[in-house]
């Protein structure tokens, strides 16, 4: 964790239990997929560094438990998140319906300029699909998400894309608000200036 990076972004994954949040994170982090990925208890965490436009980006990914009762606990992690990936299961309509509540939490607890993605997972299960691309995409628009994406953690479809799109947007946002870099504003990005030029190292806030 000591290695240098130019930017650090915190991303939180939310959505109902069993939609595949942890599988998405694991696919992104390790490149592998587990048939019986255990349920997440509380809040798990992983780090992954990627390069975008020649910049080293460190992504801090917070993977949350989906069961309703954990929400009050996970909400504490919303505040400092730069990005939110709201996930549902394309084969379970109820998980799609729940995205309304999840996004409601986002607007209540996240900063106003948080970047949002809506992700429909398990797109490999074509025969069991219950939510159409059109409907989900329209829902995404109403949530004002950056994009609606369909992923399959199992078949490694669009998983990297989701994180890269998120990071690219955050990077873009960051370069638009350079002035925030040194500010202590909660909503700024945590770029420390303990080396000569701002943005050559990062810290976790």
């Amino acid at each position: 964790m000591e290695d240098k990076c130019d930017y650090l972004f915190k991303i939180i994954l939310i959505g109902d239990a069993g939609v595949g949040k942890t599988c998405i994170v694991q696919r992104f982090k390790t490149g592998s997929w587990f048939e019986s990925q255990a349920s997440t208890i509380g809040v798990d965490f992983c780090l992954k560094t990627c390069e975008i436009n020649g910049k080293q980006i460190k992504l801090q990914v917070w993977d949350t438990a989906g069961q309703e009762r954990f929400r009050t606990i996970t909400q504490a992690y919303y505040r400092s998140a730069h990005g939110v990936i709201c996930t549902f299961d394309l084969t379970k309509e109820s998980t799609f319906d729940s995205t309304v509540e999840w996004m409601d939490d986002v607007s209540r607890f996240c900063s106003t300029n948080v970047v949002k993605l809506l992700v429909g997972n398990k797109c490999d299960m074509i025969d069991r699909r219950k939510v159409s691309h059109e409907v989900a995409s329209a829902q995404g628009k109403s949530f004002e998400v950056l994009e609606y994406l369909e992923t399959s953690a199992k078949e490694n479809t669009n998983v990297n894309d989701a994180f890269i799109k998120m990071a690219t947007e955050l990077l873009k946002q960051q370069s638009n608000v350079k002035d925030l870099a040194d500010s202590k504003d909660d909503q700024g990005f945590n770029i420390s200036n303990n080396t000569k030029s701002v943005g050559t190292s990062c810290c976790f806030g």
Binding site: M1, E2, K10, F45, C46, L47, Q60, C203, F204, G205
Partner: peptide, 14 residues
């Protein structure tokens, strides 16, 4: 023995 950062300590303990 390391930066006083929430994520580092959280991950370490996990």
């Amino acid at each position: 023995d390391g930066p006083c950062e929430m994520a580092r300590i959280y991950q370490l303990l996990l």
